[in-house]
Write a protein that binds this DNA or RNA. Structure first.
Lengths: 220, 220
DNA sequence: CATCTAGTCAAGAACTCGGTTGAATACTTG
DNA sequence: CAAGTATTCAACCGAGTTCTTGACTAGATG
């Protein structure tokens, strides 16, 4: 068997690695794990031009990680399947465990998490029926694409405004995109500073959905 | 929070993708999943110069995927932890499911698998006590680093010579490095051509070990 | 110590990547 | 159909990657 054939096969596997080899593409995957989105919205999320974002999306598409469909004059991208989410989750876990720079970069971005109480998704699932208030701290469109049943949408820029909506004595559980998502952290800190009791879900909504826990869709 | 801090965090995650973004590095990870190896041996496996292999290994080390230790005048590399194996397995699965080129490249390298019977690791585990003959079709050093209990070592280049060692009426189960490893395929084809009954384990030894199934070490 | 082996480092050539800009295309709306 | 919006394409340039070659270093051996 020709050695080039073996090399060619591993080059194909490397295509998937290549897709994740750029920080902006990783951000795109992270956002797309929340649900379908148009190019312009994605460009805004990753802070890049639309043209550049489009090109990154095409790299992801060539690696089979995303698919697209036209809706009117917009093109909506989504992750190809749940396995891609699983891959992204494992990759982050490996990076967190082994890449020394992650700890630094995470602290730089997320701030100090020492005073931040976290609960697991099983714990949240248990408490769901027991009078806990759940905040989905993601952009409204991500909430609408799917959220924890009973959670209310509190987009990041509305957190301050909604602090007083929390009845006295009620505990808030906040969640957002994942372990390394800052929105829930910020919300919990703001709530605690306002004298409320608040904790964050240690993971994000994609992990909740992939664990087979119940999901609600739409503005409800 | 500065947007550069977010970008920096995702750039760190992308380091891991970058490590897998080259076919030769992917091959290195695949070989290292079988166990510890020295640089020269690895260079031979991936068909590259020692200098180039050393540089690839350092990229993997910087991404936290491998660690090294000195043994006399050799340097032995190994995967950092089992999570890295899990990541490599998921990456291959995503590639197999979504990258169109994988199917082609795999067929080119592995040949037609239609006439090739495969058994799962649970099936093999069940049959272990029941008179099945198990062939470990990997280089001897990988067998010594860990193998399925009761399996005998039949390195790829010894398959032809060992065909007649199989008693009549005994079925052989062959395995090697993984789903995309060609050695077990070749052994099964050779055995069948010689009139024996033979099947291959659908996965490889690393998956067997990671599933928590029993493992034997050494020349036994 | 001189020599050997195994691995690493440094520099350079060919190529690929990641971003910008401006033009082209697809579909919708007036 | 003309005008507008959303996306893609093409060209370009600086920066990074991959492999080669040859020099260098750590430890083993005669």
């Amino acid at each position: 068997m020709a050695p080039e054939a073996k090399a060619a096969l591993f080059d194909q596997f490397a295509q998937v690695g290549k897709a994740f080899s750029n920080g902006r593409r990783a951000e795109l995957v992270d956002v797309l794990a929340q649900g379908e989105r148009a190019v312009e919205a994605l460009a805004g999320q990753i802070g890049q031009s639309v043209a550049n974002t489009s090109q990154h999306l095409q790299v992801l598409a060539r690696a089979g990680l995303v698919t697209s469909r036209r809706d009117g004059n917009r093109v909506l991208y989504r992750l190809a399947d749940e396995q891609v989410e699983a891959l992204w989750e494992t990759l982050r876990a490996v990076a967190a465990a082994n890449v020394s720079g992650v700890r630094q970069a995470a602290e730089e971005y997320l701030g100090d998490r020492d005073g931040l109480e976290q609960v697991s998704r099983d714990e949240l699932a248990r408490r769901l029926g027991a009078g806990v208030l759940v905040w989905d701290v993601r952009p409204a469109s991500e909430y609408e694409a799917g959220h924890v049943p009973g959670a209310i949408s509190v987009p990041p820029d509305e957190v301050q405004r909604r602090l007083d909506d929390v009845p006295d004595g009620v505990e808030v559980v906040a969640y957002c995109r994942g372990r390394f998502c800052v929105y829930a952290d910020d919300a919990v800190r703001a709530l605690v500073a306002a004298g409320r009791r608040a904790v964050r879900l240690d993971e994000g909504f994609p992990e909740w959905r992939r664990a087979g826990l119940p999901v609600a869709v739409g503005t409800g």
